[in-house]
Simulated assay, not measured.
Amino acid sequence: MKLQTSIPLFKQTNNLINYESNILLLGSCFVENIGEKLAYFKFNNKVNPFGILFHPKAIEKLIEKSLSLAYYSENEVFFHNEQWHCFDVHSKLSNPSKDNLLEHLNDSINSSCHQLKKATHIVITLGTAWVYSFLENNNTVANCHKIEQKYFDKKLLSVNAIVASLQNIIKLITTVNKKASVIFTVSPIRHVKDGFIENTQSKAHLISAIHEVIKAQLLTENNQLYYFPSYEIMMDELRDYRFYAEDMIHPSQTAINYIWEAFKYVWISEKAVKTMENVDAIQKGLQHKPFNPNSEAHKKFLQKLESKKQALSKSFPHMSF
Rank of each mutant, 00 (worst) to 15 (best):
K2L: 15
Q4M: 08
S6Y: 14
K11F: 08
K11D: 03
T13G: 11
L16T: 06
N18W: 09
S28V: 10
F30A: 03
L38Y: 04
Y40R: 12
N48G: 04
N48R: 08
G51W: 06
K61D: 14
E64V: 07
A70Q: 15
S73V: 14
F78Q: 08
F79W: 01
Q83R: 15
W84P: 01
H85V: 06
N95Q: 13
P96K: 12
D99F: 11
N110F: 15
C113K: 11
H114E: 08
L116M: 07
K117S: 11
T125W: 00
T125H: 10
A129T: 05
V131R: 00
Y132Q: 00
E136N: 04
N137G: 02
N138S: 07
N139L: 02
T140R: 01
V141G: 03
H145L: 07
K146F: 08
S165P: 00
S165W: 10
N168H: 08
I173F: 04
I173G: 04
V176Q: 06
S181P: 01
F184Y: 11
K193C: 00
N199V: 15
Q201I: 13
S202N: 05
I207G: 00
I210K: 00
I214F: 11
L219P: 06
E221N: 12
L225G: 00
L225R: 03
F228V: 04
P229Y: 09
M234E: 10
H250Y: 07
Q253C: 06
T254W: 12
T254C: 10
V266A: 04
W267Y: 12
V279Y: 05
Q283I: 08
H288Y: 10
F291G: 05
N294I: 13
H298I: 11
K299N: 15
K304D: 11
L312P: 10
S313N: 11
S313H: 02
H318E: 07
